Simulated assay, not measured.
Amino acid sequence: MADNVLVAYATKNGSTAEIAEAVAEVLRKGGLTAEAVPAGSVTDLASYDAVVLGGGLYAGRWHKDARRFVRRHRRALTERPVWFFSSGPLDASASERDIPPVPGVRRAMDKLGVTEYVTFGGRLEEGAEGRIARMIVQSGKGGDFRDFAAIESWAERVARALGGQRVR
């Protein structure tokens, strides 16, 4: 059983952080120790038995902190179970079908032997950082497209794979 799980995340406007917190909470309910931490602040993986890494998608690329996390911790990530998730589509597509990883994430998955990947809908609302993000919101294409029931269901699968208890 993997007792201590890192849920690292890379986010610009906080949506991916909230998904990571929800994942960590489900893992804790499953009897595991889990903490959600910004990917850029992680210096060592030695105390973690498993890793969940999430990154926001921006213009078809994973957030730079998620990409840096993979490069910085490549060796340690190959030595433990790893799950990836992305957040980003600003529509219902992530709830309607599986969305494959963007090419850069796919390459990292192949190198690391990632256990599972999923894409969740994103959130972009008034006050978002970045010129393009503000333009998207102003054009009426923003909103919150995260499906927390799907996020929790996926996190339960991760918990069970790590030997945690059934949450529901």
Score class of each variant (00 low, 15 high):
residue 151 I to S: 10
residue 129 E to C: 02
residue 112 L to Q: 02
residue 37 V to G: 00
residue 167 V to G: 03
residue 25 E to W: 03
residue 30 G to L: 03
residue 136 I to K: 05
residue 112 L to M: 01
residue 71 R to S: 15
residue 165 Q to G: 05
residue 91 D to Y: 05
residue 98 D to E: 13
residue 147 D to F: 02
residue 44 D to C: 12
residue 3 D to L: 09
residue 84 F to Y: 07
residue 53 L to K: 03
residue 38 P to D: 01
residue 47 S to N: 11
residue 100 P to W: 08
residue 66 A to L: 06
residue 108 A to F: 11
residue 51 V to Q: 06
residue 112 L to R: 02
residue 166 R to N: 10
residue 148 F to Q: 03
residue 130 G to D: 15
residue 50 A to W: 15
residue 99 I to C: 10
residue 163 G to I: 11
residue 3 D to T: 10
residue 163 G to V: 10
residue 106 R to P: 04
residue 65 D to Y: 00
residue 58 Y to M: 07
residue 9 Y to A: 01
residue 74 R to F: 11
residue 12 K to G: 15
residue 82 V to F: 13
residue 3 D to Y: 05
residue 126 E to P: 12
residue 147 D to K: 03
residue 60 G to K: 08
residue 123 R to A: 13
residue 101 P to H: 03
residue 17 A to Y: 10
residue 113 G to I: 02
residue 29 K to G: 04
residue 16 T to A: 10
residue 124 L to N: 04
residue 110 D to W: 00
residue 103 P to K: 11
residue 43 T to H: 12
residue 92 A to Y: 06
residue 41 S to M: 04
residue 153 S to I: 00
residue 63 H to Y: 08
residue 9 Y to T: 00
residue 157 R to W: 07
residue 59 A to Q: 14
residue 161 A to I: 04
residue 148 F to E: 08
residue 168 R to P: 09
residue 158 V to W: 07
residue 123 R to T: 07
residue 49 D to I: 06
residue 17 A to S: 13
residue 29 K to N: 08
residue 72 R to L: 08
residue 27 L to H: 12
residue 82 V to K: 14
residue 42 V to C: 01
residue 153 S to W: 03
residue 24 A to Y: 06
residue 74 R to K: 11
residue 128 A to D: 08
residue 50 A to P: 02
residue 134 R to W: 06
residue 128 A to N: 07
residue 138 Q to F: 10
residue 138 Q to D: 15
residue 152 E to W: 04
residue 166 R to A: 14
residue 93 S to K: 09
residue 1 M to K: 12
residue 31 G to W: 06
residue 14 G to Q: 14
residue 4 N to P: 00
residue 118 V to M: 01
residue 155 A to P: 07
residue 146 R to T: 00
residue 46 A to L: 01
residue 132 I to F: 14
residue 63 H to F: 09
residue 91 D to M: 08
residue 5 V to W: 04
residue 87 S to I: 05
residue 64 K to D: 15
residue 72 R to C: 00
residue 24 A to W: 09
residue 152 E to T: 02
residue 96 E to S: 05
residue 101 P to W: 02
residue 110 D to N: 13
residue 67 R to Y: 03
residue 124 L to T: 02
residue 153 S to D: 15
residue 13 N to L: 01
residue 84 F to M: 07
residue 111 K to S: 11
residue 113 G to D: 06
residue 5 V to N: 04
residue 160 R to I: 13
residue 4 N to R: 13
residue 98 D to Y: 05
residue 29 K to A: 10
residue 3 D to A: 12
